[in-house]
């Protein structure tokens, strides 16, 4: 049923997605975009797991993906709460505005 492709290809796509997400995190100052980029990065990690699972025909890859999914959901819920607080407190979405933890 399913296709047979070299795992390297899938992993390359996953790496590329991950790095695009990282690029977004590094470049964007708007915290909403930053969070979207984070979602992309986590999604690419899930893709790598699925690829590994497909290589062995085992369900473990999908299970790890589901755990990543739970993590992403939790992260997004808390992070968006933080976004609301930051926008109220600093009246901006600039992530560099919240730099009070500098040493």
């Amino acid at each position: 049923m399913a296709i047979e492709v070299p795992v390297e290809h899938v992993l390359l796509v996953a790496a590329a997605l991950f790095l695009l997400g990282l690029l977004g995190v590094l470049v964007r100052r708007n915290i909403i975009f930053l969070l979207m980029s984070l979602e992309v990065m986590m999604n690419s990690a899930g893709l790598a797991f699925i690829a590994a699972g497909a290589k062995w025909g085992a369900p473990d890859g999908q299970i790890m993906f589901m755990l990543i999914l739970a993590l992403a959901a939790a992260e997004v819920a808390v992070a968006l709460g933080l976004v609301l607080q930051i926008s109220r407190r600093f009246d901006t979405l600039d992530v560099d505005a919240a730099s009070e933890l500098n040493g």
């Binding site: 399913a2 296709i3 070299p6 795992v7 390297e8 699972g53 025909g57 369900p59 589901m66």
Partner: peptide
């Protein structure tokens, strides 16, 4: 790193359905 992986890493081409996942999970 990825290109340097050993050869013959091809996906198995099997469907792993929800039942198998649930059993394992």
């Amino acid at each position: 790193v990825i290109v340097g992986l050993p050869d013959a890493n091809v996906t198995k081409g099997e469907m792993v359905g929800p039942k198998a996942v649930g059993n394992e999970l």
